[in-house]
């Protein structure tokens, strides 16, 4: 294959990339977000495929590179699946962080709730929107696991280091 042919092919791919870019802009004109996102992402995938295949020469590379490339993509998918159950939930109080409140109490009062202004007794919604009671101590003692853990950590911190 002659040098000129190689150069012409690179320029042709560049023109295709620009053409696909214009197409993704045109798809955004109707103003439908789903159409915009799907078309833009599909076109982006095609463009990325063209750049990796022809400009990065992945189409002529050894298979190891492919294994490396796709195993990392798979790893990314795994990360996605790991966080999606949390992030994908639309309801509940899974975005409210109550931990700092418990830690502050534990440091001040070793987990005892003297003033009674903590979250105990309040209904806490789980991610699916179900109301649950956070403390279930039968004796009615005003402490919970998070307080105890925090108190334990607090005591650990106070222990002299040898």
């Amino acid at each position: 294959m002659s040098d000129d042919h190689h150069v012409k092919r690179y320029i042709k791919i560049w023109l295709w990339l620009l053409g696909l870019f214009v197409l993704s802009l045109l798809a955004a004109i109707p103003g439908m977000l789903i159409l915009t996102l799907v078309s833009a992402f599909a076109i982006a995938l095609v463009k990325a495929g063209m750049v990796t295949a022809w400009f990065m020469h992945l189409n002529t590379e050894k298979r190891y590179i492919w294994y490396l490339f796709f195993s990392c993509l798979a790893l990314m998918g795994l990360f996605y699946m790991a966080i999606f159950p949390d992030l994908g939930r639309m309801e509940g109080t899974n975005w409210v962080n109550t931990a700092p409140h418990g830690v502050a109490k534990a440091v001040g009062g070793h987990g005892d709730d003297a003033d009674g202004d903590d979250v105990h007794g309040e209904d806490v919604h789980d991610g699916a929107g179900h109301a649950t009671s956070e403390h279930t101590d039968e004796s009615g003692a005003d402490h919970d696991e998070s307080d105890e853990d925090a108190a334990a950590h607090s005591d650990d911190a106070k222990a002299p280091s040898n």
Partner: peptide
């Protein structure tokens, strides 16, 4: 190529 549609088109 991926950042552009996400940040500007959507």
């Amino acid at each position: 190529i991926f950042l552009f549609p996400l940040m500007y088109l959507a």
